[in-house]
C-alpha cells in the first residue's frame, strides 16, 4: 500500500470509528455512567454496542485469521501476548476506576474533544500524561511487581 494511501485510510477508519461511537451514543459520558450504575436506573445500551461490534468482529477476524497478508500484501500482525498476568489485571482495574469516575474511555474522549468540549480536552490531556507516566515508569513497576 502506498504511504499516502495508508495515511488516508487511517484517517478514514478513524472517522468511521468515531461515527460509530457517535451513533451508538457512547460519546456521552452520562450514558456510560448509567450503564455502569447497576444499582440505579440502568441503561443497558452499551451491551448492544459491544454485541454489534463483536458480531462483525467475529466474522472479519475469522476471515483474517485464514490469511497471512492484508488486502494490499502487508503483514497481518496479531497481538503477541496471550499471557494473563497481574499487570493485565491491575492495569485494567485502574482503567475501569477512571472509566467509572468520568464515563470516558480513550476513543469517546477524543471524539468529544473533537466536538469542542473543554472537559474532554482536560481528560484527554491527562490521559496522555497517564500514558507518558507509563512510558517512564511502567517497566520499573512491572519488574517490582514480579
Amino acid at each position: 500500500m502506498k504511504h499516502s494511501f495508508g495515511l488516508l485510510s487511517q484517517f478514514a477508519i478513524g472517522l468511521i470509528f468515531g461515527l460509530g461511537l457517535i451513533i451508538s451514543g457512547m460519546t456521552n459520558p452520562q450514558k456510560i455512567i448509567h450503564f455502569l450504575d447497576l444499582a440505579g436506573n440502568w441503561d443497558p445500551s452499551l451491551i448492544f454496542v459491544m454485541l454489534g461490534g463483536i458480531l462483525v468482529g467475529l466474522a472479519s477476524f475469522y476471515l483474517a485469521s485464514k490469511r497471512t497478508e492484508t488486502w494490499f500484501g502487508g503483514l497481518i500482525q496479531w497481538p503477541k501476548s496471550s499471557q494473563i498476568d497481574r499487570h493485565l489485571i491491575i492495569g485494567s482495574l485502574l482503567f475501569g476506576v477512571g472509566w467509572g469516575i468520568a464515563g470516558f474511555c480513550p476513543g469517546p474522549a477524543i471524539v468529544a474533544l473533537g466536538s469542542g468540549h473543554e472537559k474532554a480536552f482536560v481528560f484527554t490531556l491527562m490521559m496522555l500524561v497517564g500514558m507518558l507516566i507509563y512510558q517512564w515508569f511502567g517497566n520499573d513497576l512491572k519488574n517490582r511487581l514480579h
Binding site: F95, V97, G98, I101, P106, F123, M126, G130, M131, G138
Partner: peptide
Amino acid sequence: AGLLVGFGASY
C-alpha cells in the same frame, strides 16, 4: 480519571 485511564489502559 484521565490519569487512571491513560496509565491503566497502557499498563
